[in-house]
């Protein structure tokens, strides 16, 4: 039997103000998985993560982390998790090295080993030069990386990241993707919440979508993408006439004076589209897939719920 990294059963959370954040969700995460937890703002993602990491008290239900119940074996469950939260949650006055070494100490890692690990992770995340810099002096991207380094100091089996790339530039985002992929390939289970659907599509094998405190989808990324029945292509053309071709199955849209967008059914032969464009003396110079496929599905699923 495959060991589960997370087993959540009928998890409910009602906040003291009466807000029902989770209405009895159930889902599992396999060991070694790279899973995306998606949902609109206020859907219940951060509450779910908060309960798994014991920052939020659950109302009812059961959560197990690598087989350890958070009700009966909380300490063992906590040792398996490294958390990278959404908000910066370190002392702004401490240096990077102090932050990561102290965190290791909370997990019982002796100081000598903690210092060695600090060097490893701060170097890997390009923060070693800033080791003696107070956290408040770091840029937003550096602060995010510092939280990743801190979460890895006790070598957890699972890393949970709550919107880790929010507000960081493309270069840093890409380097974080590479880092997380390497980490996952080395055996660490990764759970990621993000608003960048392209990020989820690129990185994750499985996906769980939460909306209004309920699971609306829990499947593999491949399966979800295969459910898309339409694809959108962007065509760079030599000219865009006023009247675009008219086809029953395909819709044409003018984006600008040199670009047309087309929505095509998945199994439709594109030759017919090119014929129609040729008839109108439009030459296609290049073509690319528009990468908003998951976004369409996400909107569809969360609107439906």
């Amino acid at each position: 039997m495959t060991e589960k990294a997370i087993e959540i059963s009928n998890l409910k959370k009602t906040y003291s103000g009466g807000v029902e954040a989770l209405k009895g969700i159930s889902f599992d995460v396999e060991k070694g998985d790279f899973i995306a937890l998606l949902g609109p703002n206020g859907a219940g993602k951060s509450t779910t993560i908060g309960i798994i990491c014991s920052l939020v008290n659950k109302t009812s239900g059961e959560v197990r982390v690598f087989g350890h119940s958070i009700d009966k074996e909380l300490e063992a469950a906590k040792r398996c998790i490294g958390l990278v939260p959404q908000e910066f949650n370190f002392s702004q006055f401490e240096t990077c090295k102090q932050i990561v070494v102290t965190q290791a100490g909370y997990y019982g890692v002796p100081r000598v080993i903690a210092n060695e690990r600090a060097e490893i992770w701060l170097k890997k995340l390009s923060l070693w030069d800033k080791r003696d810099t107070p956290a408040r002096m770091l840029s937003g991207g550096m602060k995010r990386r510092l939280m990743i380094a801190r979460a890895l100091m006790h070598e957890p089996k699972m890393l949970i990241l709550d919107e880790p790339t929010a507000g960081v530039d493309i270069e840093i985002r890409r380097s974080m993707w590479e880092f997380l992929t390497e980490l996952n390939e080395a055996g660490t289970t990764v759970v990621l919440t993000t608003h960048y659907l392209e990020e989820a599509e690129q990185l994750c094998r499985n996906i769980t979508i939460i909306n209004h405190g309920e699971i609306v989808e829990n499947t593999s990324m491949k399966d979800l993408i295969s459910r898309l029945d339409m694809e959108t292509f962007v065509l760079d053309v030599d000219r865009v006439p006023d009247s675009l071709p008219d086809m029953k199955e395909v819709s044409f849209r003018k984006r600008d004076e040199a670009t047309i967008e087309i929505d095509v059914p998945k199994e439709f032969a594109l030759n017919q589209v090119f014929h129609k464009l040729s008839d109108k003396n439009i030459n296609v110079l290049s073509m690319r897939n528009k990468s908003n496929r998951l976004e369409e599905l996400f909107v569809r699923l969360t609107e439906k719920a």
Partner: peptide, 18 residues
């Protein structure tokens, strides 16, 4: 209180410190 305010108290809460 600073740890609560800056949320750095969470560093301890997520860890197994009794």
């Amino acid at each position: 209180f600073s740890a609560k305010f800056q949320r750095s108290i969470e560093e301890m809460l997520v860890s197994p410190v009794p």
